[in-house]
Structures are given as structure tokens and as C-alpha cells.
Amino acid sequence: MDEIQLPEDTMTVAFPFGIPVLLVKKQGTVYALSNKCAHMGCTLSRGTLWGYTIQCPCHEWSFDIRTGTFITAGQIRIPVYETKVENNKIYVKI
């Protein structure tokens, strides 16, 4: 995906290898995490982004986009993926 298509403080979904990945750009860094909530698999891209926290639209579970950690219970996580921006393209390591 082209980085230019991902403005600051926005979210978009990509499907590397068919896996739904939520991409978020915050303060110049691109974060990639599962687009499925750990609770019931709801689509996080339809949720609300506050700072570095994404809130699920289904049951309001909130996760840190940097680590995938559930805000209320740190032992619950969603997958996060390493990203690299090179030649204005975003690469996600699955």
C-alpha cells in the first residue's frame, strides 16, 4: 500500500495474504494490528480511534494500537505486525 494513501490519524484495512490487517498512522509511525476484536471478532476498523487506543464498535473493548494489549486486562491481546515504510510504500510482516 502507498503511504501517501494513509494520512495521519486515520485507519484503513489491508489484506496481506488474505489476513485482515488494520493500518493506523500516528505521529508519522504506521501501526498494523489485527482488524478483529479479541472478544467476538468484530471489525475494529469501524471503531473509534483515540490517541493510541482503538475502541471496538460492538462491545467497546479498547486496545493499544502499538502493542495490541486490551486496556482493561493486559493478558488479553490482539496480534500486531511489524511495519516498514520504504520508497513511500507500506510493508507489513505477517
Rank of each mutant, 00 (worst) to 15 (best):
M1L: 11
M1S: 14
E3P: 03
E3G: 08
I4V: 10
I4S: 15
I4E: 15
I4Y: 07
Q5L: 15
L6Y: 03
P7E: 10
E8R: 03
D9G: 00
D9W: 12
D9E: 14
D9P: 00
D9F: 11
T10V: 04
T10Q: 14
T10F: 10
M11W: 03
M11E: 09
M11K: 06
M11A: 08
T12G: 10
T12P: 11
V13D: 11
V13S: 07
V13R: 03
V13M: 12
F15L: 14
P16E: 08
P16Q: 12
P16C: 13
P16R: 12
F17D: 15
F17Q: 15
F17H: 14
G18R: 00
G18S: 07
G18A: 09
P20A: 15
V21G: 06
L22R: 02
L23M: 04
L23Y: 00
K25T: 03
K25E: 09
K26N: 05
K26W: 07
Q27I: 10
Q27Y: 06
G28N: 06
G28S: 04
V30I: 12
A32G: 04
L33Q: 08
N35G: 03
N35P: 02
K36C: 11
K36P: 01
K36T: 12
C37I: 01
A38Y: 00
M40L: 14
G41R: 07
G41C: 09
G41P: 03
C42K: 06
C42M: 10
C42I: 02
T43G: 01
T43R: 04
T43W: 05
T43P: 01
S45W: 04
S45F: 09
R46Y: 12
R46M: 10
R46W: 09
G47K: 02
T48W: 12
T48V: 09
T48E: 14
T48R: 05
L49A: 07
L49D: 01
W50I: 00
W50F: 05
W50R: 00
W50T: 00
G51A: 08
G51K: 02
Y52N: 11
Y52C: 07
T53S: 03
T53Q: 05
I54T: 02
I54Q: 02
I54S: 00
Q55V: 06
C56N: 05
C56R: 02
P57H: 01
C58K: 00
C58Q: 05
H59Q: 11
H59C: 07
H59M: 09
E60W: 11
E60Q: 13
W61A: 11
W61L: 08
S62M: 07
S62L: 03
F63R: 04
F63G: 06
F63L: 09
F63V: 09
F63W: 07
F63I: 06
R66E: 11
T67E: 04
T67I: 14
G68Y: 01
T69L: 01
T69Y: 00
F70Q: 04
I71L: 13
I71E: 12
T72A: 15
T72N: 15
A73I: 04
Q75W: 14
R77H: 14
I78Q: 00
I78D: 01
P79D: 15
P79C: 11
P79S: 15
V80C: 12
V80T: 15
Y81S: 07
Y81I: 06
E82D: 14
K84D: 08
V85F: 07
V85N: 05
V85D: 04
E86K: 08
E86F: 13
E86N: 05
E86T: 12
K89D: 03
Y91P: 08
Y91K: 12
V92P: 13
K93M: 10
K93H: 13
